[in-house]
């Protein structure tokens, strides 16, 4: 089981790094935001795995169930998902304005227009 657990975490880290790489290396602003989302989602997986118990039911009380998984990470991640979508919305709004005032959403183009960006 522990081997499987480690395998889980390794994939989460892979996803995290794929997201982070997308954020840092893409020049397109929309792509950056997608990357941010991927990055954050993989962190959410990590949290939920922290609260997972083998054979534990979802934390909704039911007859005859004694083992529940940990509700606290779920609560935290609910909040974090909301934060993520809020950031996404503001980021996309900024992207629209950047497109309207610079005519491009490619970081390279923006940099060419104004080296200080």
């Amino acid at each position: 089981m522990s081997g499987l657990g480690i395998w889980n975490y390794v994939i989460f880290i892979f996803l995290m790094m794929a997201g982070l790489y997308m954020v840092i290396s893409s020049t397109n602003l929309v792509k950056k935001i997608i990357g941010l989302n991927v990055f954050q989602t993989s962190v959410f997986f990590m949290y939920i795995s922290f609260g997972y118990i083998d054979g534990g039911a979802g934390p909704v009380l039911a007859e005859g169930v004694t083992l529940y998984s940990n509700p606290l990470p779920h609560v935290l991640i609910l909040t974090a998902i909301v934060v993520g979508v809020a950031t996404t919305a503001v980021g996309l709004a900024l992207t629209i304005r950047i497109k309207e005032s610079f005519g491009s959403i490619e970081e390279d183009d923006l940099h060419k227009m104004d080296p200080s960006i």
Partner: peptide, 26 residues
């Protein structure tokens, strides 16, 4: 208009920072 790009790059950096903090707390 450069305020927009500066805000965007802060958004990216700030979100990465916030997420790093989240990983640490996790």
């Amino acid at each position: 208009r450069r305020a927009l790009t500066s805000s965007f790059s802060y958004l990216v950096m700030g979100t990465i920072g916030g997420t790093f903090y989240l990983i640490g707390v996790g």
